[in-house]
Design a protein around this nucleic acid. Structure first.
Length: 489
RNA sequence: GGUACCGUGACCGAGUGGUUAGGUAGCGGUCUGCAAAACCGUCGACAGCGGUUCGAAUCCGCUCGGUACCUCCA
């Protein structure tokens, strides 16, 4: 398949031409959420970034299998020094079954994703549903001699692996540095080396989430699920693996090591990493206490928020920055995004009302090409959006009779705007309120009365009507074509 | 300390060795009874210091400042 897409591959630290292994098929795996709490703004970034990638690959004709996992087993809490299972702990505190907690937050995550217009992945596997695959992978790694068992736990032998392979190929880490930098931690004594990591952990008696295995009743190690599920659904080698930059090391580095140890093959051709969202220059993270949940954003329910921000505004805000740059949150920035988005959507509504002429004053074909060029350059959505605003300018100018457009060009412009805004960027028109026939008729009546007042130069009355409607968030505009009204948020 | 990276105008945020980013805000104008919207014009930047070059915000070095990772959190 022909394409001009280039992607920045973390593995090579440069942009590379995108050439999938088995075109037109593309396999893509992205690290999904840990469902022990609500998603915050930081979680929205990878979801939206790889939604964009997914949408664009499909748009240019690829058949994409997109796998995004749900992590629901066996991971430790940041501030818990007891080595206690993250989901297990929450469950005990609230007297709930662990899977009840998982179900609750999975549903809420899906609600958030749906609101953000993030498409469902092709497959959304749960770690808890793939214990067998993970045990099998551990067995293969043990057989290959890259792991060892101690007291019912199994650890990956990083030092041995690094003798014939490169543990650090993705992150640039040097093993010798890791050995000296690693701190002493509880449970470390079982490992042969501080850089080793767990493939299987024997569960303590109080540990709720546990599964039988050849080594002990326990749970799989942190990095294993992604390797096992990626292999299961995409094969031993697939095209794209995505995730946040914070996962680069040790998570993704260890995923590579596990797959190479088990299958003797580098698992992924292109590693893509999105950058963080920052708040006052610092990463937004739950453990840092500066995370604002998506539900709070939508409701405006947080002391750092001056107002609610709609899901699509947040999506647009995120897409206005390139995915590999940090993006700094502020009310000012979000409000700017909100206004820009409204302007874009208003222009799209105008698109159907434009009159055509004999010739075009703008080069529409060139505009369309620039949009594709932007996306082909490592999914540069901010450039694509800048081009779409050029389209907005043209639309408004044609409406104001400052520019003209042929009907062929108008069709191209419509297609470009609709393809990019809705299909590729995944934006959508948000209904501020329910409109219906009764409201339309009532508004029609009111505006006739106002028009009468205006015609008789009774501006006090006409302004009174407009002001009162404004209090109901109904905005009245007198344009050359007549009066327009719209319901604002 | 190690690894990766960043520092752009009021704010957010692109970018290329020599030509407009874009959005929001401001200013001036057009339109309007007014307002809004829209359009036109405009202000305004490349952390600092050197170096390479005919020419650097874009390449190199140093300095200063910031971020992420280096935790059995995924």
């Amino acid at each position: 398949m022909e394409n001009n897409l280039t992607v920045y591959n973390t593995l090579s630290r440069r942009k590379e031409k995108f050439e999938p292994m088995n075109p037109p098929f593309v396999g893509m795996y992205v690290c999904g959420p840990t469902v022990y709490g609500d998603a915050h703004l930081g979680h929205a970034r990878p979801a939206i970034t790889f939604d964009l990638v997914y949408r664009y690959l499909k748009h240019i004709g690829y058949k994409v299998r997109y796998v995004r996992n749900i992590t629901d087993v066996g991971h430790l809490e940041h501030d818990a020094d007891s080595g206690e299972d993250k989901i297990g702990k929450k469950a005990r505190l609230e007297q709930l079954e662990p899977m009840e907690v998982v179900q609750y937050f999975t549903d809420r995550y899906h609600q958030n994703m749906s609101a953000l217009n993030v498409l469902s992945p092709s497959i959304e596997p749960k770690a808890s549903g793939h214990i067998i695959e993970q045990i099998e992978m551990i067995r293969k790694i043990l057989e290959a001699g890259f792991a060892y068992e101690v007291n019912g736990s199994v650890y990956f032998d990083v030092v041995k692996y690094n003798q014939n392979h490169n543990y650090g190929i993705l992150s640039g880490r040097v093993l010798e540095d890791l050995m000296t930098a690693t701190r002493e931690l509880e449970g470390q004594e079982e490992k042969h080396n501080p850089a080793d990591f767990a493939l299987w952990k024997k569960a303590q008696p109080e540990h709720i989430m546990r599964w039988p295995s050849p080594w002990s009743d326990g749970f799989p190690g942190w990095h294993l699920e992604c390797s096992a599920m990626g292999t299961r659904y995409l094969g031993e080698q697939f095209d794209i693996h995505g995730g946040g930059m914070d996962l680069l090391f040790p998570h993704h580095e260890s995923e590579i090591a596990q797959s190479v140890a088990a299958n003797s093959k580098a698992p992924v051709k292109y590693w893509l990493h999105n950058n963080m969202i920052t708040l006052n220059g610092q990463k937004m993270g739950k453990s840092l206490g500066n995370a604002i949940s998506l539900f709070d954003f939508f409701a405006g329910n947080h002391n750092l928020l001056q107002q609610p921000y709609s899901p699509i505004t947040i999506r647009f805000f995120i897409l206005q920055a390139h995915y590999r740059s940090t993006l700094d949150f502020s009310n000012e920035a979000l409000q700017a995004a909100d206004k820009g988005l409204k302007k874009l959507m208003a222009a799209l509504a105008t698109l159907d009302k434009l009159a055509v002429s004999e010739k075009s004053t703008s080069n529409i074909t060139e505009l369309r090409k620039k949009c594709y060029d932007a996306m082909n350059d490592d999914f540069n959505s901010p450039i694509a959006i800048a081009q779409l605003f050029e389209g907005v300018r043209i639309i408004n100018s044609v409406k104001n009779k400052k520019e003209t457009i042929t009907d062929t060009d108008l069709e191209i412009l419509k297609k470009t705007m609709i393809d990019f805004v809705f299909e590729i960027l995944g934006l959508k028109q948000e209904e501020a309120g329910r409109s219906n026939e009764l409201i339309d008729e009532l508004m029609g009546t009111i505006l006739i009365l106002r028009q009468k007042a205006r015609e008789s130069k009774d501006f006090a009355t006409s302004d009174l009507i407009r002001d009162h409607l404004a209090k109901l968030n109904i905005i009245v505009k007198d344009t050359k074509e007549g009066v327009e009204w719209s319901l604002e948020e």
